[in-house]
């Protein structure tokens, strides 16, 4: 009886998913495989594998990977540090991690624009000190900076959740068996936190590889990632079929990278 009621409670979500997730996916698929006259074709995909588009895809994956790596390197120590604090201070620091997310993501990126631009905060300061101005904007560094800034909380939170639950007696057991602090970390704490690393990597890599806001605002008009390419196909060029094919490829890229990450994480757990 209870089970049935719970099942009924899930109906709205199932309906939602069917309408707004599954149906659009089929539409995208259908578009991706159709020619202008509506007949079946793989030409859209063939076009996507032209060198110019491959370069865009490669750049997207590369930048997303760099962004994910930086988030991991910054986020792990932060999460480790927060998880080891007393309860009160933990709450305060987690709050600071989350607070930027209260503001719209677009606005936060615009804020970076004003900091980095030619007459922005940094260059004004440099000028004041009599130093030459720097070209901080419209390069891949600025794009990665924007992505790291926006996605870092998605790395810290899952890592914190896992690290906070680390069993203190396992740490003591490792010390008891002769492990120094570094030994405890590399032999126990780090391997046990791999599930957190995995979800953090997933939650950062996915939005990073699909983003078009950072590349648009901080990378400039000529800085094209796969996200921008898709956006252009739908909103500027009105080639929905090619845009759909690119979307399908992007989904495959995500699927494959997540599969690889899952495998790596699983293998770590087996040994």
């Amino acid at each position: 009886m209870r089970g049935r009621n719970i099942k009924k409670a899930a109906y709205p979500y199932i309906l939602w998913t069917a309408l707004f997730v599954i149906a659009p996916m089929f539409l995208v698929m259908a578009n991706a495989f159709s020619a202008a006259d509506g007949s079946f074709t793989t030409a859209n995909f063939a076009r996507a594998f032209e060198p110019i588009y491959l370069a865009v895809m490669w750049r997207s994956v590369e930048l997303a990977a760099v962004c994910t790596a930086i988030c991991l390197l910054l986020g792990y120590p932060a999460a480790y540090f927060i998880a080891r604090l007393r309860l009160k201070s933990r709450g305060a620091l987690l709050f600071l991690v989350i607070v930027p997310m209260w503001m719209n993501f677009l606005l936060r990126t615009y804020a970076w624009l004003t900091i980095l631009e030619k007459n922005g905060v940094i260059n004004s300061a440099l000028e004041f000190l009599g130093l030459p101005k720097l070209n901080l904007l419209y390069n891949s560094g600025a794009v990665v900076l924007g992505m790291v800034y926006n996605f870092l909380p998605f790395m810290i939170l899952p890592l914190y959740t896992v690290l906070e639950k680390t069993d203190g007696t396992l740490v003591e057991a490792a010390q008891d068996l002769g492990a120094s602090r570094a030994g405890v970390f590399f032999r126990v704490t780090l391997p046990l936190s791999l599930p957190g690393v995995l979800s953090g990597v997933t939650m950062v890599f996915m939005p990073a590889v699909t983003t078009f806001v950072e590349s648009n605002l901080l990378g400039g008009n000529h800085f094209i990632l796969i996200g921008n390419l898709i956006e252009q196909q739908f909103l500027t060029v009105y080639d929905w079929r090619f845009g759909s094919a690119l979307s399908v490829i992007l989904m495959l890229i995500i699927l494959i990278s997540m599969g690889a990450a899952e495998l790596a994480g699983g293998a770590g757990e087996e040994t």
């Binding site: 003591e172 490792a174 002769g178 120094s180 791999l194």
Partner: peptide
């Protein structure tokens, strides 16, 4: 002496075995 330098080993109440190792 820190724990890892003492000539003792401990068997913990809840065993504290490492779940990520066989």
């Amino acid at each position: 002496l820190p724990p890892y330098k003492r000539p003792v080993n401990t068997i913990f109440q809840k065993y504290a075995l490492f779940p990520h190792l066989n």
